[in-house]
């Protein structure tokens, strides 16, 4: 099911996410020091164009990446093919992108 376009999209989204995942891990390691509180997180992120860009790109990349990965698994482990498989991939991508962007908007308040 993987053609050149999907293969490149999978690798490019992965490469984009390498620094983002490392950044996200660093943020988490920093943020959990002394326990998590909403009062601590939100002032850092609210109104920040930087974090909006950081997590906005992250969400879009992961939507593409996860949709391709999940449809590969659906092809091989569930034997899905054709229209059903394509619809599943598109649905995964859209659902993750919409939910993810909502979360980014909520946390940055932009």
């Amino acid at each position: 099911m993987i053609d050149t376009r999907l293969y490149l999209a999978q690798r490019i989204s992965a490469l984009i996410m390498v620094p983002l995942v490392i950044g996200h891990l660093a943020v988490m390691l920093y943020a959990v020091q002394g326990g998590l509180t909403a009062a601590e997180i939100l002032p850092r992120t609210r109104g920040s164009v930087f974090w909006f860009g950081f997590y906005g790109v992250f969400v879009l990349a992961v939507s593409v990446h996860a949709a391709i990965g999940l449809s590969s698994v659906a092809r091989e482990w569930l034997n899905w093919t054709g229209t059903r498989l394509r619809a599943f991939a598109v649905l995964c991508c859209l659902a993750l992108a919409v939910l993810g962007m909502r979360a980014v908007l909520a946390v940055t308040g932009l």
Partner: peptide, 9 residues
């Protein structure tokens, strides 16, 4: 070998 069932899978 680069079709939908080719090497990229």
């Amino acid at each position: 070998v680069t079709g939908t069932d080719g090497c990229l899978n």
